[in-house]
Design a protein around this nucleic acid. Structure first.
Lengths: 207, 207
DNA sequence: GGCAGCACTAAGCGCTCGCTCACCTGGGGC
DNA sequence: GCCCCAGGTGAGCGAGCGCTTAGTGCTGCC
């Protein structure tokens, strides 16, 4: 472990946008705890303890436990959407863009599975207004993938009878990686990304 | 609603093997509550309330709240495995057997999504010994699907470079249906089953 | 009618939860 | 030297948790 940025499982935690330092430590601790046990099974004492602070310190930086989840979910969705957008809006044929999008999206879900788990599976723990904000981001994620598939159908690269259904299936496949992937397994995030990119190209009839 | 068997979302609840009646009502109430809010966010008072009983009544039929989850998980996994086995062990080419297996597995996850959600997503709430029992069942589920794919590769029907990885992806795709499917959506369980069977045949190079 | 057996309830125990509050502390400005 | 105050702590509040216990009423058998 060469720097303080390396944490459990070799994941790098790029929460640089969260300041001050104590707030970031609490947030990283919350991500780990939520991913391991789920939001409802995690106590504020556990989060504060992992960050090396007293339970009361949490409330200096966050109003409630739910605000922690909201911040994590928001930042995580922004990052996931950014990854997809970068791949979707490149130059090139739809086939290459879809493979790139799926590959990088899956690498993120595998390599940063701690964050991805919280982001993808703890949505229901948010209150109505926070959930609505996140759901809007998810619609944008859906639109990016659907856009690539529509482009491929229009150009004749893909053969897809049900564009919306296939979009849903592709995203579902990628997201579920966060549920089963483990660093102790036989595959690296890169390998899973490559396998999934190939499988998705088959699903859209591009191979 | 013609009979007492119809519940929220039009799902039929075939928990006939659970007796006596009060124990079944409690179990059905627990399935609904766990599916809506998750195991940890569900209280024993909520379960008993949904079943029209006092909180203490739960402990006449079940030792703990966890035993309820264990029973649900066990019965659900048995049912899911049974569905897959029935399709996998039929006569016929691997292509037809895989389409049948995926179609029926997906129809179950969509049509009985309340149960499927609890079964597939609340595994970590179980204690070590109960979890080990369920994990063993999941390995059998994996073996059934992998068996069909291996058969298809051997007979030349399928073109699959990574059998274990593809098996994992197919199961992941099917299971995640329980997360996103809703009875208010535009598709019926039958439609999703047919769409997914087609997508999976493409994934194994059978179309 | 009388009574045993059992499904069920009302009340509540001990505990832990999310969160608060009164107090402390150490480094910067003058 | 002194104050200030952001950022922290220890103790603990009210609430709600999983679960228990003492007692109640209903049912079937004689």
């Amino acid at each position: 472990m060469s720097t303080a940025e390396e944490t459990t499982g070799g994941e790098v935690e790029p929460w640089e946008e969260v300041t001050p330092d104590a707030a970031r430590r609490l947030l990283v601790a919350a991500v780990e705890a939520f991913a391991e046990r789920g939001y409802h099974a995690t106590t504020t004492r556990d989060i504060a303890g992992r960050a090396g602070m007293s339970p009361a310190a949490l409330y200096i930086h966050y109003k409630t436990k739910e605000e922690l989840l909201h911040r994590i979910s928001r930042i995580g969705h922004d990052k996931a959407l950014d990854i997809l957008r970068t791949a979707a809006r490149r130059e090139g044929p739809a086939k290459a863009r879809l493979a790139d999008a799926v590959g990088s999206f899956v690498r993120w879900h595998a390599g940063r599975r701690t964050t991805a788990r919280v982001v993808q599976y703890e949505l229901d723990a948010l209150g109505p207004e926070a959930r609505a904000e996140i759901v809007a981001l998810r619609r944008q994620v859906d639109a990016e993938v659907r856009g690539i598939i529509e482009d491929g159908v229009a150009s004749g690269e893909f053969d897809v009878p049900d564009v919306q259904g296939t979009t849903l299936a592709v995203l579902s496949l990628c997201i579920d990686v966060a549920r089963w992937f483990t660093v102790n397994g036989p595959r690296t995030p890169e390998e899973v990304g490559a396998l999934y990119a190939d499988l998705v190209l088959r699903m859209v009839g591009a191979e």
